[in-house]
């Protein structure tokens, strides 16, 4: 398709390229630049309503729509899966209002929008990962009021967060936080990495890729720029640990170094495992690198 054709096609739908009006995009873009300049800081933005419901990825979607261009190739995943209903829905919508190429191949995508996972494949500096965020405030667990959490961030007063972790250890003998594990960015801001599993946290640290986080309902954008330190909160004697799958392997590709979904077989009731990143698993299966 030529540029003119793409333009005509999207404009004929009655909507602007990438759906959002230019004013909205400019505002979101300005806020993205600020978010990148202040790693881990939650930048407020005038979140727009979209034809997709609040809480269903509208923050991530507004970032994607504001940065995407005709030269991009888009991938959208939910729970690591390209075929998940919500991912398909979002991808279809972006495709319709931009005409961009879409893919399921992590390596071929220039923009990946995701919910709850970071792809297994190590991403490059030519790619951007956009994470959908339900709760942008990592401190919300210990303080419900925004005015107060803002003060805590302003003064880097994180004592209550540390106390929370300490009490958790006293009660459970381990830090019991599963997903949404709080991290410190660049030694300054405590940040909610979105509900990704702990497995994905190390991938944020000093990566080649730019990570952008969008919370549509809570109207916040934040970022982890490339080569920026991201450290999970931990104590010397109680270290952060990723999920432990024991000696489980993916039933399809045989992988034992990926995040696995635990599945209960309908008929036998037996438990088995499968890669959560379906694209990674598919390619390993086709390559024959699986067992």
């Amino acid at each position: 398709m030529t540029l003119k054709e793409i333009l005509r096609k999207t404009f004929d739908n009655g909507y602007n390229f990438a759906f959002l009006d230019e004013g909205a995009k400019r505002e979101i873009r300005r806020k993205i630049l600020k978010a990148v300049a202040i790693p881990g800081y939650q930048t407020p933005f005038g979140s727009r309503e979209l034809p997709i419901a609040r809480g269903w990825g509208t923050g991530g979607l507004q970032i994607t729509l504001s940065i995407i261009g005709t030269g991009d190739t888009l991938k959208v995943i939910d729970q690591g899966c390209d075929g998940s209903v919500n991912a398909v829905n979002i991808k279809k919508f972006i495709g319709r209002v931009t005409g961009v190429k879409t893919t399921t191949d992590t390596n071929k995508a220039s923009i990946i929008q995701t919910r709850h996972r970071v792809p297994e494949e190590i991403m490059t500096e030519d790619q951007i990962l956009i994470l959908q965020v339900p709760y942008p405030e990592a401190l919300r667990t210990v303080e419900p009021e925004e005015t107060e959490t803002r003060r805590m961030h302003a003064e880097a007063d994180y004592s209550r967060m540390w106390l929370y972790l300490y009490e958790d250890i006293v009660r459970f003998g381990e830090i019991s936080i599963g997903a949404r594990y709080p991290v410190a960015v660049n030694g300054r801001y405590i940040m909610d990495p979105s509900p990704i599993p702990r497995w994905d946290i190390p991938k944020l640290d000093r990566a080649d890729t730019l990570y952008l986080f969008g919370a549509g309902r809570e109207k916040r954008i934040y970022a982890v720029p490339p080569h920026t330190e991201v450290k999970p909160l931990e104590f010397e004697d109680y270290l952060f640990r990723v999920e432990d799958f024991g000696d489980a392997r993916c039933r399809r590709c045989g992988s034992c170094d990926t995040f696995l979904d635990e599945i209960i077989d309908d008929e036998t009731g037996k438990r088995f495992y499968q890669c959560s990143d379906t694209d990674y698993c598919d390619r390993r299966t086709v390559d024959g690198t699986g067992s």
Partner: peptide
């Protein structure tokens, strides 16, 4: 679906 966070 929330099965990734649930797994975690």
């Amino acid at each position: 679906p929330h099965y990734v966070t649930f797994q975690s």
